[in-house]
Simulated assay, not measured.
Amino acid sequence: MHIAPNIAAKAQKIKFLILDVDGVLTDNRLYYSDSGEELKAFYTRDGHGMVMLKKSGVDIGIITGRTSKLVAKRCQDLKINHLYMGVPDKLPSFLELLATLKLAPEQIAYIGDDILDLPILKRIGFSITPADGEAEVKSRVDYVSNYIGGQGVVREVCEIIMRSQGTFQQHMDFYLRDLAE
C-alpha cells in the first residue's frame, strides 16, 4: 500500500479515530423488514481493522445523527466505548469528546460522507471521506478513500494509520507466525 507523504505525516499524529455510521460503516442505505425493524449490514473487514487499530493504541468513537440498537450492538461487539447517537448537529458531541479525551484536534481523524460531517471534518488533523462521499465533502477533505462506504473505507483508513505509525507489521507478524515451532 502506497501512502503519500503528506497523508502519512497526518496519520502519524492520530490518537483517536471518529466514524460516522450511515455511508461510512454501512452502504448508506436503510433497510426495513416487513415488521418495521431496521436492518444494517456491517463489513467485517472494517471491524477487524478497528480491532487491530485499537490494539495498536488508537482508540475509536462514533458520532451519528441516527439512533440505532444495531449500532449500539456493533459498538459493544467491537468494544467501542465512545458512542454518540441521535445527534444531527455533531459538532457539540465532537467538542465534548475532544475535551473528555484531552486531545488536540490534529490528533483526531474523522471519516464522514455528507455535508453534516463538514463541521468536524474541517477542524481535525486527518479528514477522510469514502469514494462515494458527497462532492462537497470530497473537495474539502485530506483523503478520499479508494473504497465506498460500508465496503472497506474504514479498514483502509485503519491500515493507513497503522502503517504510518509503524504498528501494522506487528499484526502481520501475529497472523504469519509459524505455529510449528
Score class of each variant (00 low, 15 high):
I7S: 10
D173S: 14
Y32C: 06
E159L: 13
I148P: 01
R45H: 13
T67Y: 03
G149W: 05
I3Q: 07
S68W: 03
V153W: 04
F126Y: 12
Y32A: 04
E156H: 10
F126P: 03
G23P: 10
D173Y: 06
P92N: 10
S145R: 07
D142G: 14
E156Q: 14
S56F: 02
E106F: 03
K73L: 12
Y110I: 00
E134M: 13
K55P: 01
G150V: 06
D46W: 00
L70K: 09
R45V: 10
I60V: 15
L25C: 09
Y43R: 03
N6W: 07
D178V: 00
R45L: 14
I108L: 03
V24D: 01
D132Y: 05
N28R: 07
A131T: 00
V153S: 15
K13Q: 14
V144K: 04
E38I: 06
V21M: 11
L39S: 08
C75W: 01
G57V: 09
L103H: 02
I60Q: 05
I148N: 12
D46A: 00
Q165T: 12
T167Y: 04
D117R: 04
S35L: 05
S164V: 07
G133H: 06
D173M: 06
K40H: 13
Q170C: 05
E136L: 15
G57S: 11
A180T: 13
V87N: 12
Y143R: 09
K90E: 13
A99S: 15
I14Y: 00
A104L: 13
M1L: 12
P130F: 08
K15N: 13
I62D: 01
D77E: 15
Y110F: 15
K90W: 10
H171L: 04
G47I: 07
A135R: 13
G133Q: 07
N81D: 14
D20E: 11
G23A: 11
D113K: 07
A131H: 11
L121T: 05
H82L: 09
F42Q: 08
K79H: 11
S139L: 13
K15C: 05
A72F: 01
G125D: 04
A11N: 08
L17R: 04
I115S: 09
I115M: 10
R155Q: 13
G125A: 06
L70R: 08
M52N: 09
D114L: 09
D46I: 01
V24S: 06
E159Q: 15
I80T: 05
M85W: 00
T129Y: 04
A72S: 11
V71S: 03
T64H: 05
A99V: 07
I115H: 02
Y110E: 03
D89P: 01
S56E: 05
T167A: 11
G149E: 11
T100M: 07
E106K: 05
G166D: 14
S164Y: 05
E156D: 13
S33E: 15
I120R: 00
G23D: 06
V58E: 05
F168Y: 15
F42M: 07
